[in-house]
Simulated scan of single mutants.
Amino acid sequence: MVQSLSTAYRERLRSGEIKPDAAQAAAVEALARLESELNALAEPGFGFALFKKPKAPRGVYLWGPVGRGKSMLMDLFFDSAPVTRKRRVHFQAFMAEVHALVGEWRKGDAAARKARFGQTKGDDPIPPVAEYIAEQAKLLCFDELQVTDIADAMILGRLFEHLFERGVVLVATSNRPPDDLYKDGINRQLFLPFIALIQERLELVAVRGPSDYRLDRLRAARVYFTPLDAAAETGFDALWRDLLGGMEETGATLEVLGRQVRLPRAAGGLVRASFASLCATALGPQDYLAVAARFHTVFLEAVPVLGAERRNEARRFVDLIDSLYEAGARLVVLAAAEPDALYPAGDGAFEFERTASRLHEMRSADWLENARD
């Protein structure tokens, strides 16, 4: 039998895994309300007949600073929700899928449209795309809903109008209240209907407790692990698991200049990658800017000692650190040596001094405190 959200949350409190938090308790109450409504509609069997009714249950929108437990609470709800067709997905990954589906509809002939969407007629891709998504999942759980791309902003209102009409229930986490989404964005007036839909169809809950639990964990742990031995690797792995807080590593794919950068170990705003995967492959500044924009915390492992014979890898590493630094991201490193000893001598060592200095700064308490959400 699936454990209820409230029971799962109480167990975490009893075990000491989490601490009592009034803001989290309000979020649990809202999510438990939705869970109860879904359960009631599921009796005696949940065959989605409920979604043929005029309105599906009201969803939930959890917003507040990072580290307050929003993703953890949504994960508990997702596990307990009595819905067979459900998806938990990072919002940016979902929008990448939407744009791909829109492209398929526009470029597809009748046969291709029929195969993918089960229909063929019409110039507007939004209704068939919404119907396709609604067939795949009647409950959508979005982590880190934020809108910075004008292409996303232009279609969200119409897309979710169709999804809600088809009975899709939405639960989302965000660092911003709805009124601040796509703030100061181009043609923002065209985005306002989506904000209105969120306010109408979702219960808004501020999760702004006094403790940033993620930052507390980072403060309590070192964020630069060296050398590359078993003890350092154990500490690095433990901190990664701790910050995940039970989130699944769903991975992420970034679209950069028409290319795809695949990051298999990602969850929400966290990503873990090796030096080899980011710096020993044909990536460049635009790729690193995309990583820095997408993730607030980057775990970088197996950073070797560098020299002139690895000049290209060192150059990429410099670009990566510059991008993360300028974006105000948090960085956790597992390296063969301290920053000053990563490029000890040879052509390029002088230029590397700035990178070493930035690595020192990014491990400081002040940096962790003031890094972006």
Rank of each mutant, 00 (worst) to 15 (best):
residue 34 L to H: 03
residue 320 L to H: 06
residue 311 R to N: 03
residue 237 D to C: 07
residue 232 A to E: 11
residue 161 E to I: 00
residue 133 I to T: 08
residue 271 V to P: 09
residue 71 S to P: 09
residue 24 Q to D: 04
residue 161 E to R: 13
residue 301 E to W: 00
residue 233 E to T: 12
residue 246 G to S: 03
residue 218 L to S: 04
residue 78 F to H: 15
residue 313 E to A: 11
residue 256 V to S: 08
residue 316 R to Q: 08
residue 148 T to E: 14
residue 170 L to V: 15
residue 32 A to S: 15
residue 227 P to F: 12
residue 236 F to S: 04
residue 87 R to F: 00
residue 244 L to N: 10
residue 174 S to Q: 11
residue 121 K to C: 01
residue 176 R to Q: 15
residue 152 D to V: 07
residue 243 L to H: 04
residue 23 A to L: 05
residue 240 W to M: 06
residue 144 E to I: 05
residue 197 L to G: 05
residue 244 L to I: 11
residue 8 A to N: 06
residue 238 A to Q: 14
residue 271 V to I: 13
residue 4 S to H: 06
residue 266 A to N: 01
residue 207 V to N: 08
residue 265 R to K: 15
residue 37 E to A: 13
residue 126 I to D: 03
residue 37 E to L: 11
residue 25 A to Q: 14
residue 173 T to R: 04
residue 4 S to M: 05
residue 4 S to D: 12
residue 73 L to G: 04
residue 251 G to C: 11
residue 196 A to N: 13
residue 348 G to T: 02
residue 279 C to D: 04
residue 111 A to I: 08
residue 39 N to T: 05
residue 236 F to E: 05
residue 279 C to E: 06
residue 347 D to F: 11
residue 65 P to G: 13
residue 288 Y to T: 12
residue 164 F to P: 00
residue 253 T to D: 09
residue 289 L to V: 14
residue 190 L to C: 01
residue 346 G to C: 04
residue 5 L to S: 03
residue 153 A to K: 07
residue 5 L to K: 00
residue 296 H to M: 00
residue 39 N to M: 02
residue 263 L to C: 04
residue 304 P to D: 09
residue 12 R to K: 15
residue 126 I to C: 03
residue 328 G to C: 02
residue 27 A to W: 02
residue 120 T to M: 11
residue 151 A to F: 02
residue 209 G to L: 02
residue 272 R to P: 02
residue 34 L to E: 06
residue 120 T to Q: 14
residue 208 R to M: 13
residue 362 M to Q: 06
residue 229 D to W: 10
residue 282 A to I: 02
residue 155 I to N: 08
